[in-house]
């Protein structure tokens, strides 16, 4: 999986790894938008460029096996990777594809990844990831999951 350095167009290989409990205090709200310490009892992953320690993205998930579903609780990029001036592109996409892989590995053809955005960003996720809208919940199921994994595994 790779992210793209926007200034050069260069692709950089990434690792997505579990966050250790003592790392949460380093994820400040000023750079990662949320109070990530509140997620320290959840399953949280960080995105880093291979061989480097700086964290460019975070995702917190909840596995709901009885519904064959993984719910994304919280998802973010680091501040310098947001908006038009971002340093690296495709961070959110890589994190979404990573979660989609866990869902597919665990639940096969029944897999589902869900999101419940509180603000008006639902449309962005529907358009970018072709997510379905049910009430206030966005979901990716097999057709979207396969497409997303293939897109980010083969880039």
């Amino acid at each position: 999986m790779k992210i793209i350095e926007t200034s050069t167009g260069e692709k950089r290989l990434v690792d997505i790894l579990p966050v250790e409990i003592d790392e949460f205090k380093t994820f400040k709200k000023e750079r990662y938008f949320f109070d990530w310490k509140k997620e320290k009892h959840q399953e949280v992953y960080k995105l880093q460029i291979k061989g480097m320690s700086d964290v460019f993205g975070l995702v917190s998930i909840e596995r709901i096996p009885e519904e064959w579903r993984i719910h994304i609780r919280l998802l973010t990029v680091s501040k310098e990777n947001k908006g038009k001036e971002k340093k690296y592109d495709k961070i959110i996409g890589n994190l979404m594809a990573f979660v989609a892989k866990i869902a597919l590995r665990e639940f096969g053809e029944l897999a589902c990844v869900s999101l419940r955005p509180k603000s008006q960003i639902a449309r962005h996720y529907m358009e970018t990831y072709n997510m379905n809208l049910t009430g206030l919940t966005l979901s990716m199921e097999i057709p979207q999951i396969l497409a997303l994994i293939n897109l980010y595994d083969n880039d």
């Binding site: 998802l75 947001k82 869900s114 955005p117 049910t134 919940t137």
Partner: peptide
């Protein structure tokens, strides 16, 4: 920042009732 579509998303359920109702519809 929070209205920027690319910064990420807070999608935590605010209550068990909300979670159950969403889960059933989904």
């Amino acid at each position: 920042d929070k209205l920027d579509t690319e910064f990420g998303v807070d999608s935590r359920y605010s209550s068990e009732k909300e979670r159950k109702s969403d889960a059933a519809a989904l």
